[in-house]
Design a protein around this nucleic acid. Structure first.
Lengths: 334, 334
DNA sequence: ATGAAAGCGCTAACAG
DNA sequence: CTGTTAGCGCTTTCAT
């Protein structure tokens, strides 16, 4: 039963039912008696205004889109949950899409999302910047904020950490612990975030008087197999880097696996530090030192920027602080 | 620009544009020339039929709902991704909701989902069975399938493992390894899945001539703090159970943490086996023996059962096999 | 081969 | 305080 049928049944106008059921009874000064009658009947027959009709009329659906590269990555699933939680009270639903770290899929999904009448869109890009992606994002007909991995040259509200700074943070911790030969395991080498983190590492080395050319780099993808392969590559180098940074959250699993397979022990044979805190980071043997992104505050800022109230959007990139979480996977060397 | 504006611009009727853009040109024998003209213009002006209008008209939105208890749980995020992938080709979007393991939130979200004009709904319940939940599920106006944690007494298509059998599988492995004093860490004691797994464990004990009364049980929730507390409880029992089963995927982290805090070593001081394979299961020290659910096939069956084509739905519960993945966290005792 | 028009369920402007 | 009505953008008869 829809609200017009209910109205008919009650012998009142649809508009009256609509007003009561969408909580505008006071605004239109519907009599208390009518309100009661309508509400009671609505409850009895389980009548709720159809969001589709309302959406069409209002030009809004009460739903935002969230596009992430990989929902199985704890960083993104935690982020997704945080964002959904923040919208729940507002009565706004979140439609989640997963681009599976694939740029083509990402564009396709983005275009689809853009064509639905959403109230807004939060996009955490795969990280490979294409013109098509840039133009889709910057021509969005709805409020849009970019999360985590930014699109250089696109003027759109965004929130992320300073990846260069974070790279330096990681490298400096290793350098301060006496490590001179560093290695990096990339997630996606074409992702801007990885490139920036790498840049940070190299800068830190330079500032410490280390030659960035001595930095060993491996890694070309997020899958388990690729991580393992690249990590093995890194660990079988001779000399082996004594301090390794996993630029992605999943990479560390590859490093751990490779390390075990090679019979190496952390931090005796090498130190390691990983981007992104994971539920199990502290429970590994040894507990893993991580660069932690403030997920909650990223979610908060993204939601704020999405700015559903329609206030002017600032396009200053919102930058949040990444922090170093010291654990036992990094040891000092002389 | 919408299709009527485009039609006006082109000097043709809206219906013509609609027919071309929704791929029904042949069906209505639109002339090749018109088709070309419309398609070209649509591309140029980036015109796509608004799904909202179409949805209203057709009574379908091209979207299904997916309600999970916790998207940060790798089991559910993997499942969610698998399901979304399967729908992507069909052109059907997936709207994800997270009930945060809370029965009240679950009901609220479910009702919301039910009132949106979705093409179907896949629900992985929190596991606490209430009359309200049962009635909402069984009165669904749209195709609905229940996933993972079933609702006893509700006749609705479903797919899950046989939790009793899985409980037995875990217990038998421990018993065969010589363990006589078993312990269980529950996730949510009110969840039907946990209860059934427990039942399986007790059955296995009985069959092996062990007294189920000697089974130590702890655990009341999924949070990290609760798991840690309950795990500590289990590990400080005297005598300490020599074989412990984590009935939930997250529980094992609590056990690991408690074990470390108490200075215990696995499997020297106790053996452990955990439900649900996790990305890090094999990488722990020691690698964790798990009960693995066939996520891909669960996704496949769920999608099949959702049965969007409108064929008759069978209501026979679809049961998939859980398997034991042997690793080093279980040791034989004499 | 195409157009005209009805109507999906709703809200808001206007009218009393 | 409440009713009437005009669309929101689309698909689909029905008509030509």
């Amino acid at each position: 039963m829809n609200i017009s049928e209910l109205a008919q049944h009650l012998g009142v106008a649809v508009s009256t039912v609509s007003r009561v059921l969408s909580g505008n009874a006071d605004k239109y000064r519907i009599s208390e008696k009518t309100v009661q009658r309508v509400q009671k009947a609505a409850e009895k027959y389980r009548v709720v205004p159809d969001p589709l009709g309302a959406g069409l009329r209002k030009g809004k659906l009460g739903m935002i889109g969230l596009l992430v590269p990989d929902i199985t990555n704890p960083f993104f699933s935690t982020l997704a949950r945080a964002i959904e939680l923040r919208f729940r009270d507002t009565g706004i639903a979140v439609q989640l899409c997963d681009s599976a770290e694939d740029p083509a899929t990402e564009i396709a999904l983005l275009n689809k999302l853009l064509s639905r009448r959403l109230d807004g869109l939060i996009v955490a890009p795969v990280g490979e910047v294409s013109d098509e992606l840039k133009s889709a994002v910057s021509n969005s007909p709805m409020p849009l904020v970019v999360l985590d991995r930014l699109l250089p040259g696109v003027s759109v509200p965004s929130v992320s950490i300073d990846n260069i700074k974070a790279g330096k943070l990681a490298a400096n911790h290793l350098i301060e612990s006496g490590h001179k030969h560093l290695g990096c395991l990339r997630g996606n080498c074409r992702a801007i975030s990885d490139q920036e983190r790498l840049k940070g590492v190299e800068e830190a080395m330079r500032e410490a008087g280390l030659d960035p050319a001595t930095l060993s780099i491996a890694g070309t993808g997020y899958t388990r197999e690729l991580s393992l392969l690249s990590a093995t590559e890194l660990l079988t180098l001779s000399p082996r880097p004594s301090g390794i940074i996993s630029l992605s959250g999943q990479g560390i699993l590859g490093i751990l696996e490779a390390s075990r397979a090679s019979g190496l022990s952390i931090p005796r044979d090498f130190s390691v530090i990983a981007f992104d805190e994971q539920p199990w980071s502290a429970l590994m043997q040894p507990p893993i030192t991580t660069i932690t992104q403030p997920i909650e505050s990223m979610a908060e800022k993204a939601v704020f920027l999405l700015n559903l109230e329609g206030r002017a959007k600032e396009v200053t990139p919102e930058v949040v602080e990444a922090t170093l979480c010291r654990r036992e996977s990094v040891a000092a060397v002389n």
